[in-house]
Every structure is written in C-alpha cells, then in structure tokens.
Design a binder for these strands. Structure first.
Lengths: 203, 203
DNA sequence: TTATAAATACCGACCGGTTGGTATGTTGTC
DNA sequence: GACAACATACCAACCGGTCGGTATTTATAA
C-alpha cells in the first residue's frame, strides 16, 4: 500500500538524527541505514530539509499513538493522571540515550534559524503533545483551586523540563540525571496542587 | 599579549554555533566571520573539534565572570539569593534567540555521541555553573529545613529547566515562552522552601 | 479477460560545489 | 636567527542534488 522506502527512510532518520544530529546526518548515510538508494530518497522527498520536516510530522504521529495508548489515563483524579503521566515519562528513560531522547528537540536547535519548515514541524510536535495534557491539567486546576497558573503554560513546562533533562543526560552521558530532573518536575506538580493553603486536597 | 586570531575565532564560534548549530558551521564561515584566514585557524586549533572544545571552555570562563559579578549575590537570605539568580536568568532573555541561548547546550546535542572531548567540555560548563549555586541552595535547605532534595540535584534542575526553556523558545520562535518557563522554575523553588508544613519561614 | 497506456517506485552513475585539513610560504618580534 | 603568528594555494573526500533509465503497479477501455 504505502511505499516502503519512505517509511524505512523516516525510521532511519529517527535513529541517525537522534545520534548525530541533523546537519551531521548525510543523505547517503540515511539511505545506507534504510537500505534504499539515493534515487528513492529524492523520489519521496524533494530535499533533505523536506525529509526532516516529514520526520518531525511522523514523530508527532508516532508519539501521539504511544501516549494515547499509555496507561496513565486510567485514573479517576485528574491530578493522579498528571502524576502518572510524569511517572510514565520517567519509565521511558532507559536504554541508550539516543533511544529515549526527543527527535524534534534535537532537530529544532539546529534548524530554528535556517529552516522555518522544520522549526514549525518541531513546534507542532512539542505543543501538540503538550495540548494532550491540558485537559487533565485544567480539570486539576479547577478541582484543587489553583490560581496563577494556566493549563497551557504548565503543560509546556512539563515538556521544557523533559527536554532539559535530555540535554543534561547527553552532557553527563548518564540517563540517571534525567530521571532526577523528572523527579523534580513531579515534586513541583505535587506542591503546586496540594500546598499553599489551598482549600482541600479532596473536595 | 594573547593572540588575536584565536580570540576572534572563539568569539565568532559563539555567534555562529548558536545560530546554526555546530555541524552546520563550517571552518570557512568561522574564519570569514572572525576576519582571519584558514591558516590562522589551523595554527591555533588542530581540528574543528578542538575549536569546539576550546569554545566550550571559553564559554565556561565567560559565563563564570558574568555571573560572578551579577547582583544576585547581594542578599542576606540564601533563598533570596537563589530567587534573585532566577530573576537574573530571566532578565538575560532578551534580544535575538541566538544571543541569549546556551552555546554548550546547543553543541552537546550534536556532539555527545561522536565527540567525547566536546561532550566533556559541555558537561564541565553546565555542571560547573550549577556548582556555583550549590552553596546558596545548601544554606537555604538547612535554614528552611527542607528534606528530600539535595543541593546538587536542585542546582542541576535549574539548568535543565533553563535549557528546556531555550528549546521551546527556539521551537516557537518566541522568547516569551522561555520567560514563562523560568517563572515556573521560580514558583517551584518558592513552594519547595516555604510550603508543606515546614518549620518556619524565618527561623 | 486482456492489451495497453500512464503513473508511480526505484535505481545508480554522475555533477559542481563545499568540506576539513595540509603544505609551504611570509612577516614581525625577541 | 629562531620561533610564533599568520597568509595563500591547494587537495582528496564528501556533500546535496540531478538525471536518464527501468521495474512495477494501477487505470482504462476494448
């Protein structure tokens, strides 16, 4: 049905770009890893940048289905769902660094100035994923009477923290530091919703 | 005293790498921006990777002197110093994105797998800067009787959050979102030190 | 059902420009 | 005259991208 080479190239891009970055990834290397020829590459993508933008979009779809089927939605309390989401993100941090870090977070640092299409695709990926958290956050804000924070801003903050955790893991060459950072994020959410003289933990 | 071309190349590296990333920055472009020739480049640096590692070390020194002379140290209370540090980081977020984002945070994403020397220099830069916060954090932890958090871990968390804020700013092409993220960091620190039935706000 | 036209998927040699790096000067200073 | 600090010319490898061609699938109509 769908062309095979295209899917293999997008899959190869996930791996190679997360390992070496976008600019350092050559079209030839991508083709070799995907087991296709250069002709196939430029048949499916009009340029290397177009492949990158397509990879970012494909990343959005891949992560969307991963998180949609994840178990953290199965809590009655919205705050419990948020905390379970954070735990789930922590559980994903295992194996090689290139296997759990974020494709679009890596790419956007190289492309934000020079490639607007890639930048836009990366932002759609990050903000689109953040939006899937907004409903739960909004419900928790109302249930626990938190003020001074918007659901959109807090949702983005979870993503910022996780992206930063990945940078530290890469710099230290140690996944453990990323887990520590996500623990801080969880503590922040707990404090935010259960402290500071707010009305009730269970309304 | 110190050779001129070397300093000009390191300065050019700060700008170019933060704009386009490391791999996309060519030696020729660096030389053109610095106003020196290729011969001068390879006289001072044995390879492009060596320049990158030297730039990361120079970044450490530059930021160290910037923060050493910053006014946030002038508070009697250690928590006030930490919060003033966060405010100072927020104040630095202005102008073009490439002017306030972090060189080593950008570079390490491209180099962590393939260039151990660059990765090490980037980690020294990040963790070294975090260490300058540890003394204040440790004092605040003791003064406000906070437990469950180490000074080292919280210091690194401030850096992770700020790095993540930069990624979001690049993706959205908007510095404002970075400021929002740093506001969350400040709120976390405030909650951490003043909530949850801890003994006293002022001992 | 089958002949055929048209579109799609893919191949791999090739191209001009760019890349990081080198080899060999030249110049100024102690 | 020794040595560091540059400058100039050059190179082989690699880069993204093109192009003429072929294999395979799909659409159409007799």
């Amino acid at each position: 049905m769908k062309p095979n080479a295209r899917a293999k190239l997008l899959d190869a891009a996930f791996g190679t770009i997360r390992e070496r970055g976008y600019a350092a990834t050559s079209v030839d290397e991508l083709c070799a890893r995907a087991g296709v020829t250069k002709g196939a590459f430029f048949h499916h993508f009009k340029s290397k940048d177009a492949l990158a933008a397509a990879a970012a979009d494909h990343w959005s779809q891949t992560t969307a289905s991963l998180f949609a089927s994840a178990p953290y939605h199965d809590h009655a309390d919205p705050l419990a769902r948020i905390l379970a989401y954070i735990d789930f993100r922590k559980d994903l941090v295992r194996g090689e660094i290139a296997e759990f870090t974020c494709l679009v977070g890596t790419m956007v640092q190289e492309a934000y100035e020079t490639a607007p299409d890639i930048r836009g695709a990366c932002w759609r990926s990050i903000s689109g994923h953040a939006q899937t958290l907004e409903e739960d956050i909004q419900a928790a804000i109302e249930k626990y009477h938190v003020n001074g924070v918007t659901a959109e801003s807090l949702a983005l903050y979870t993503q910022a923290t996780i992206q930063g955790a990945f940078i530290l893991a890469k710099a230290k060459n140690d996944a453990g530091v990323a887990i520590d950072m996500i623990d801080h994020l969880k503590r922040y959410v707990e404090l935010l919703f259960t402290c500071k003289g707010r009305e009730g933990r269970r309304p």
